[in-house]
Every structure is written in C-alpha cells, then in structure tokens.
Amino acid sequence: MSSGEKYVAAAYGVVFVTVLVYVAIIAAKLARLERETAELAELARRRNDG
C-alpha cells in the first residue's frame, strides 16, 4: 500500500468510525429509553392495581 493510499484509507476510516461510534451511542440511548419505558409501565401498572 502506497503512502497516498494509506492517507485515503485513514480519511475514509475516520468518517466510518465516527458514524459507527455515533450509531453505538444512539443504540445505548435507545436501550436506556427502553429500560425507562419499562420502569414507567411497571409504575403505572402498580398505581392501577393499588
């Protein structure tokens, strides 16, 4: 691999990794929102029962 090719791979790799990290952050956030929704549903159920 020539040095030019390495720089091109690095530039495209930086963009790819950034998008990947962003998707991972969003996935973590979604998991937290799902957990919180489940907690709230449980809370609402208990309120209805009680």
Binding site: I26, K29, L30, L33, L40, R47
Partner: peptide, 28 residues
C-alpha cells in the same frame, strides 16, 4: 442525507427522553 438522518434520529431521541421525563413526573 446522512446529516439530516442523524439530525432526525437525535431529535427523536431527545423528544422521547423529554416525554419520558414528563411522564415520570406525572406518575410520581
């Protein structure tokens, strides 16, 4: 298009987060 998609995803997440907070306050 990628930026707009990420913008919508981020906005959706933030709004869901705020709605859940509002719901939690109402329930507690």
């Amino acid at each position: 298009t990628l930026a707009y998609a990420l913008y919508r995803v981020e906005l959706l997440g933030k709004r869901l987060d705020a709605n859940l907070r509002e719901l939690r306050e109402a329930l507690t």
